[in-house]
Amino acid sequence: MKKHLIPLGFLVLLIILPPFLTGYWLRILTGVIMFATMTEAINIIAGYAGYPAFGNVVFFGIGAYVTAILMNHGFGFYLTLIPSIVTAVLFSVIIGLPVLRLRGHYFAIASLGVNVATMEVVNNLKIAGAAEGLTLPLKKGASPHAVYTYFYFLFLIALVLSVLFTIWLERNRFGFGLRAIRVDEDGALAMGINTPYYKTLAWAYSAMFTALVGSIYAYWISYIDPETVFDPIISVKMFVMMLLGGASTVYGPIIGAVILELITELVWSKFVSIHGIVLGIIIILTVILIPKGFLDLFTGGFSWKRLVQNIKENMI
């Protein structure tokens, strides 16, 4: 329980903070919270179960599109959430049954292929506005700040839900099953774990949270197109955030999201033209220098020795 006290303090801070922030900072913080939630979601399948779902952004895109299409047909935002989640979960199960039989490289790339193939289908889908994308009704509010605050809290609720889920996972038989699968699938089978079922369930949960975020995102940004909401770079950012903070931990994804999203936002605002270069360098350096994440590096006191040792392990 003790380790959740500090995060709880941060949560309280996040709840009382909005009135004191400018629109700019509120927006940046909203972005951080959005990515933190998606990183918590990818952490379920990639962190705990060890299945590197490189195409996880596909659920973000599906969520965004279901909400956009339904809102364009007169549905209220909240009414679109259940269909959005159900669609993404069904998609994850249908795709997951064959694709989750693959391991390692093959799963990673297959999930990326699913993402790109889905994007291409949406690109040709009339009801989804094809390549031109879709515009959503604007959220009305007393002031721009009020609208910003509204979305800020929507994302914050999603984040809290995903964190609560992960805390539950840590102390639950399902979580133990996933961790066993990550290390050794045959060993997990021999321990009585129904691995195909567990993997599918893990991906479905991951899809659920990612789609929820996608729905909120679509309403927030109010314009979506396939190239943006199915962009593989979003998946990769989630991965890097998970790595930076520490995979298969409750709070690692949030720490990673804060670090990477703040850096990229600051770089983005100052050097738009070399944004990708900086992001690329950060990604490469993260993999080389802190392959086990910041949380690992600082557990039981920081030591240069461990830093160097972690790097050397992966060198040839």
Partner: peptide, 25 residues
């Protein structure tokens, strides 16, 4: 070579980072 022995998804991410870098360059 500095991370070649790392987990699959780490090396995938690394080469993706290189892709982002090269594309922007």
């Amino acid at each position: 070579n500095l991370a070649i022995k790392a987990d699959v998804f780490l090396t995938l991410i690394m080469t993706f980072g290189m892709d982002v870098l090269l594309a922007q360059l």
